[in-house]
Design a protein around this nucleic acid. Structure first.
Length: 305
DNA sequence: ACCCAGGCGGGCG
DNA sequence: CGCCCGCATGGG
């Protein structure tokens, strides 16, 4: 009879932190974590660990309550995952380049970039292609439930699944992946899993610079320029990365190119010149604002002064 | 019914 | 190179 492991908890002081905006801004945790808006709490897995995070207090100054069976691991995990060492005051100073950016920062103040496992990020964003946020989450959770190693509770009952590693998916069949709803991405998922298990060490790319990192990532089946930017940003913390999806393209054209059709290359050049190593932060604020305000679809954004 | 979604691979010019 | 097309599927 194993000793009953009890949960323990501790609080971390945070400033300029908003759990809801962070969760809702279509980063990897959006696709496989569980968020409770009522209690402002988030539950997710990290390896075989189950982590519970609750945010309280204000956005300017608040507390992150961490609850788990292994506090040492979990506090380190939360600190890394939510990039708590980012000084948002200086980030905002660096990306407040115009009234649109100031409006987005004001509206989504405290939204953070997250830093996730490279393979988890790769899988999430292969699933993301030509897809919408709700269905990305649906498919990702199906894949986790189907292929992720079981996490068992005190009664030996399955209470959750770890995120499946590339090795767990390398032997998946197309049929099984289709049953998860992956559609035409099933082939990409299988090929990417095989490649990242047998031919490429994602962990080994951590020391690469922006350009070489993207180039290596684009060697993975189902990973093109945009998905490579997402993996670089959310999986490696490469904040020079500036993913341009359809929402970003429309918003950038509307806000910075007088509404004219503009190629992704030009948009990248513009972002790099304007925000440099902070482009990834700028991107997240532009993306989240654009998607919620439906910029370029059916509404005009209201700008601050 | 119709259009769209955090795009990519492949084929063609 | 760049351009163009098909692609599974469910939400709005």
């Amino acid at each position: 009879m194993p000793m009953h492991e009890t949960l323990s908890a501790t609080g971390i002081g945070v400033s300029l932190f908003d759990l809801r905006h962070t969760f809702e801004s279509a980063q990897p945790l959006t696709f496989y974590a569980e968020y409770n808006a009522q209690s402002n709490t988030l539950t997710y897995t990290s390896g075989a660990h189950i982590i519970n995070v609750g945010a309280s207090g204000g956005v300017e100054k608040g507390t992150l309550l961490v609850v788990s069976k292994d506090l040492g691991y979990s506090v380190a995990e939360v600190t890394r995952r939510f990039r708590l060492s980012d000084n948002m005051r200086s980030v905002y100073k660096r990306i407040s380049t115009d009234s649109f950016m100031r409006a987005s920062i004001e509206r989504y103040k405290g939204m953070r970039l997250t830093l996730n496992d490279p393979w988890e990020t790769t899988l999430c964003f292969i699933i993301s292609q030509f897809n919408n946020v709700k269905r990305i989450g649906l498919i990702t959770k199906n894949v986790v439930r189907t292929f992720g190693p079981a996490i068992k509770g005190d009664n030996d009952n399955v209470i959750a699944h770890s995120f499946p590693g590339s090795g767990d998916l390398a032997h998946a069949t197309i049929k099984e992946l289709m049953a998860c709803g992956a559609g035409f991405r099933a082939k990409y998922i299988k090929e990417a899993a095989e490649y990242c298990t047998n031919n490429l060490s994602l962990q080994g790319l951590r020391s690469k610079g922006h350009d070489e990192l993207k180039e290596e990532l684009m060697g993975i089946s189902g990973v093109g320029d945009k998905v490579a930017d997402c993996i670089a940003l959310f999986g490696y913390g490469d904040t020079r990365a500036f993913p341009v999806d359809v929402w970003m393209q429309r918003a950038m054209e509307r806000m910075y190119f007088k509404g004219k059709k503009t190629g992704v290359r030009k948009i990248h050049e513009f972002a790099d010149k304007r925000w440099g190593a902070y482009s990834g932060f700028a991107q997240q604020y532009i993306y989240h604002y654009a998607r919620n305000a439906r910029i370029g679809v059916d509404a005009k954004p209201r700008l601050g002064k």
